[in-house]
Design a protein around this nucleic acid. Structure first.
Length: 411
DNA sequence: TCTGGGGTCCTAGGACCC
DNA sequence: TCTGGGGTCCTAGGACCC
């Protein structure tokens, strides 16, 4: 019998910070926001003592936060105030001004991520990465993986992760990934839930449609308009009706999902499809007035994405840009080259071409650069990565925003 | 002062080729 | 006054996830 586990670290980013600052345990803490490094300030001010001795009242509060970030993770005490992931910091500050804010420490988070995943792989080798704080694990052929429906193995993994890191996680074990994912939420934090095939009706059908991994805000709204609120409501519709309303692929998938059917395997390895860098500005920028600033940011994004490609050993053939306007509309443009590249100047040139095809009269809040159609250079014939013309001399480089200085200039 | 950053996958139209 | 059909690639946008 197939037994698949979904493991989710509890409030991962926040829990990692609590390991460093145990004095914050039990308090509302939110992680996120970005750029402003409060940490540095704290550490300098209290350089004379271990960080665990920094007084609680010295930490920065959400009410003093200024910026455009969103919350990455909130501790459980903060969640009591209605604060949660993906919420804007400003909104969160209104709900819980007394919460402590800390920036994300990506390096530390990645370090703990590697550690907990390697602990799992030593116990059960078939593991699928789903971001820094989540994995699927195939229990089916692991010795003892079937005992009590997987509970024994889940307990062992929980205990091993806690011993190695001091962090807790929640695990759901079920016949497939779809149900396991829902089950891991049943007893959060530090919980284990075992679901069997015949339990779908009793334990899955009463849940709101949004709990299905793959039904987002748009589909939820549409389902509500059709008076479907629970997963059981979806299961009560015919496959044909769902296909009529949601399209062949999505409708059929939704029907299967509602009935708890999912035969996707646990995939242990995958190749990246694209790499990108993007940034939201502190204030909205204008292609004319803030030309120099935008140009510098643009070049920096191209450089960073090129560094990412080189560091990870990839080249790409499709170069794209992404803009977000002040009204939050998004535009993308891309250009497929006839050769693969990881060269910053080539990327910048191609991205510059893309930029000429989009409206630059409206203020921008975000700029991004993406490279897609990736390949490993050693798997390619030499001609495919051949560099084209060497980088143009600086003064000849067509300026990014040249020609867009004023609408009239845009000839 | 609403709404980060890094991804994947799907759809749909047009170009182009046989 | 008629205009195949299939396959693949490119591009833009959008839904969704962590």
């Amino acid at each position: 019998m197939r037994r698949i586990a979904h493991l989710d670290m509890d409030a991962f980013f926040a829990s990692v910070e609590l390991l460093r600052y145990p004095q914050l345990k039990g308090l509302p803490v939110v992680i996120g926001g970005g750029r402003r490094s409060v940490d540095d300030l704290l550490l300098r001010r209290f350089a004379d003592r271990p960080v665990s001795q920094i007084p609680v009242d010295a930490f920065p509060l959400l009410r003093d936060y200024v910026g455009r970030g969103v919350i990455t993770t909130a501790t459980y005490p903060a969640r009591q105030f209605g604060v949660g992931s993906a919420m804007g910091m400003m909104k969160a500050a209104r709900l819980c001004p007394q919460a402590i804010v800390l920036p994300v420490d990506f390096e530390e988070v990645r370090r703990y991520s590697r550690t907990f995943k390697s602990v799992i792989r030593e116990i059960a080798p078939v593991v699928e990465d789903r971001g820094v704080d989540e994995v699927y694990i195939d229990f089916t052929d692991v010795p003892g993986g079937q005992r009590e429906g997987g509970r024994v193995l889940a307990r062992l993994i929980q205990k091993s992760i806690f011993e190695a890191t001091g962090l807790t996680c929640s695990i759901g074990v079920a016949p497939n990934k779809l149900i396991a994912k829902m089950a891991s939420e049943f007893h959060k934090p530090n919980g284990i839930s075992i679901v069997y095939e015949p339990d779908v009706q009793a334990r899955i059908w009463p849940l709101p449609v949004r709990k299905i991994n793959g039904i987002g805000p748009k589909s939820e709204a549409k389902l509500h308009r059709l008076h479907l609120h629970t997963i059981g409501d979806i299961a009560g519709q015919s496959r044909e009706w769902l296909i009529d309303n949601f399209g062949q692929a999505y409708g059929a998938w939704m029907h299967d999902a509602a009935w708890g059917r999912d035969d996707r395997p646990v995939v242990t390895e995958s190749e990246p499809v694209s790499m990108s860098r993007e940034t939201t500005f502190d204030r909205d920028l204008h292609a004319v007035r803030d030309r120099a600033e935008l140009g510098a940011i643009f070049t920096d994004l191209c450089t960073r994405v090129a560094e990412d490609l080189q560091r990870k050993g990839y080249v790409g053939r499709t170069i794209g840009i992404k803009l977000r306007y002040d009204d939050f509309r998004t535009a993308t443009r891309d250009l497929t080259l006839d050769h693969y590249t990881a060269d910053p100047a080539t990327i910048r040139r191609a991205a510059g071409q893309c930029l000429k095809r989009v409206d630059l009269q409206q203020r921008l809040r975000l700029l991004g650069v993406r490279v897609g159609k990736l390949a490993r250079p050693d798997a390619l014939p030499d001609a495919a990565t051949e560099q084209p013309a060497p980088p143009v001399a600086a003064e000849q480089t067509p300026d990014l925003f040249h020609g867009f200085d004023t609408p009239q200039d845009a000839r």
